[in-house]
Amino acid sequence: MTEQKRNWTGGNQESLIDVVKLTKTFEDIIAVNEISFSVDEGEIFGFLGPNGAGKTTTINILTGLSRPDSGTIVVAGLDCTKNPKAAQHLIGIVPDESNLYPELSGFDNLCFCASLYGIRKKERCERARELLQIFGLREAANRKFAGYSKGMKRKLTIAAGIIHRPQILFLDEPTTGIDVASARQIRQLISALNSNGTSIFLTTHYIEEAERLCNRIAFIVKGRIVRIDTIENLMGQTQGQHVVQFAFQTTTDKACEYIKAEFPELQCKTVSEGISIESPLPIRVGPLVRLLEDNGLEVTEAKKILPTLEDVFVKITGIEAGMMKQEKEKMKMGGNA
């Protein structure tokens, strides 16, 4: 399996989820503030934002675990605003923390989850075996869930979320807190699921994950959606922007001063690796290296930086993506301690 985006054509599909002016407050905190969006059939829709932005609250409202203060939700043509149960047979949910039964085996957990959707015994056993095979958990089928590793727990939770073949799958931070290999495998599984026709609503704080998997992304900050667009359109934001990064033998904070004095048209900022120079015009590296070396700085590396979704995110939200990731990891570590 490889991580490959499905050929989502965009715009032609029917909306599977339609959310209009959804608002939710907790006491005096506005968790979700009049957000509107739609998720098309067959797409992977990313919901990207920092900690506390309102991602999980949105998922909870959409799946029926929380009630909105105002706004409307229509899932697969069914109005779920007042009756969230209306579409629960069509959706699968994978929460940010595995919530299966620790005392049951992997196989029993899947069978039990299937039974909640009214699937008969023979069919649910077959489906459980099939999913354990697909998710590489066949060997651990009869082991108690409590004894699974974090990655295995995550995979089984995803398997439980799709046991009833939902039309839409809600994935809340599916790769947070697990090892690189498991995260990669989970991303491949998400791609495969989408290729088989399942629409996916994915929340994540890993920008590169959203970039790899999603067709469209909504950036959510402090309960408000600040931008929704396709990856291509979002990346288009950085077109025409040229970035070159310089690294030095020894750390210095003077480099930007020299550059600003000699080339005022260039934007220079200090980054962890050295300095980063931005310009709407192509940057000639030679004169810059000469200037820096004439001022006694030994340039060890000069490289052209290709724009990423992270740059777009920073540009639109003003939030440093690295900080967002660190904050989340710290919180997870704290939670696990």
Binding site: G64, L65, K85, P95, E97, Y101, G118
Partner: peptide
Amino acid sequence: KGRSFERLLLSPIS
């Protein structure tokens, strides 16, 4: 507390 009750609340039964 273990959040497995959420799984039941999210199932399509009243």
